[in-house]
Design a protein around this nucleic acid. Structure first.
Lengths: 227, 227
DNA sequence: GGGCCTATCTATAAATG
DNA sequence: TCATTTATAGATAGGCC
């Protein structure tokens, strides 16, 4: 139906295919709707376009229709849905894991000395032996660990002591330098006082005096003496 | 398309509805097929007749298409199938259980004195204390068990001894009776010999002699003595 | 503007009452 | 079966990101 008859095979032209998809999809959905109404049928129609877009028609709940279809076709119950298989698998897995946990808990309880009533003398002796082995291993490991920690602490002590000594020597040097500077300053001040008392022309008295001592104090002294 | 236009509403005539269903269903399936071919679309079509018969078209695996649809529409993940919920639940359960097993195995290993490298001195000490407590409990239980077993053995000994004594006394009585009988027999034989030597009439000598002694030997003796 | 989708028009094929 | 209704091919335009 259309301007010409067409062969039922994939339409090569992208545009034509796209347009035809749109038209025929609408037609299909409409016909599905009409059939469901006219004949009281339950219909689910799912269409994926080639680019992955999804269109659907369902006159009823789509999931319930799918479930109904599953039941209707599962007379051969060999095919399980992924979810069903998963559920079963993990259910069994859980069961096994729970059993394993039971056993492990029993073992742990016994090793902690609990729930021993079900054991006889022989089993108690075996348990005791095992615990003795364990405790000896633990003590050995503890000894190693203590040794290691002690060594680490000693090493840290030594390092600290070294650093301490280094800092002390540095401080000593700094103090010495400070003292030298103080001595120098004292000499300079003495010289200034001397100038104030003995310079009749008041030379240099108006110059600002900053904290840093003049670089060549001795030269000044000498030059003054020579002058 | 047909001899007359029809209104889209449920066809009341059963026969007409049936015929229309058959025709339109085939038409729908055909159109679905054509669309899937012409436009390279993935289509699943499920139709239930009002009498419960199922018809379907799917150019691809119907289950995989349905799964694809689920995923495509599960941007609103409010509706999960029972199987999906189950699978998820048990999957999480398995995960948790596996973690629990991991922890238990670690604990057990530590209690056995294995895999201790990850522990520090404090943890090792705690472990040691715990093991010591365990071992003392086990020893106490072992002591109790040994005691119980010893007591049971002693009790059994006593019972055996009692039984032994009882048997011995019974045997003693039996031996006494036997001896008395032997003595009685000796007296009888002596008497017979006496008869043989002193009885001129050979009275009673031809009587058979059986092993069982006569019931009243003493009386015979006395009677003979008196005679 | 460009790619993708849909609507409109019309002649004709297809569906179906 | 077949008259008649419907669907739609082809071409093109409109709308939306």
């Amino acid at each position: 139906m259309g301007r010409g008859k067409i062969e039922i095979k994939r339409i090569e032209s992208n545009t034509n295919r796209q347009v035809t998809f749109c038209k025929r999809r609408n037609g299909l959905l409409k016909k599905a709707y009409e059939l469901s109404i006219l004949c009281d049928a339950e219909i689910t129609l799912i269409v994926f376009s080639s680019r992955g877009r999804v269109y659907e028609y369902a006159n009823n709940n789509i999931k319930s229709t799918i479930e109904k279809y599953r039941k209707a076709t599962s007379s051969a119950p060999t095919t399980w849905s992924t979810q069903e298989v998963n559920a079963q698998f993990y259910q069994q897995e859980s069961k096994k894991l729970r059993q394993q946990i039971q056993m492990l808990q029993n073992t742990t309880r016994h090793l902690k000395g609990e729930g021993l009533d079900c054991l006889n003398v022989k089993e108690l002796k075996q348990l005791e032996t095992r615990l003795e082995k364990g405790i000896s291993k633990i003590r050995s490991k503890k000894y190693d660990a203590i040794l290691a920690e002690t060594e680490a602490a000693e090493k840290r002590d030594i390092e600290l002591e070294n650093e301490h000594a280094f800092l002390r020597s540095k401080l000593h040097i700094a103090e010495c330098e400070r003292e030298q500077q103080l001595n120098a300053n004292t000499a300079y001040n003495t010289f200034q006082a001397y100038l104030a008392r003995n310079n009749p022309l008041q030379l240099n008295m108006m110059e600002p005096i900053d904290d840093t001592p003049p670089a060549y104090v001795p030269d000044q002294k000498y030059s003054l003496r020579l002058g």
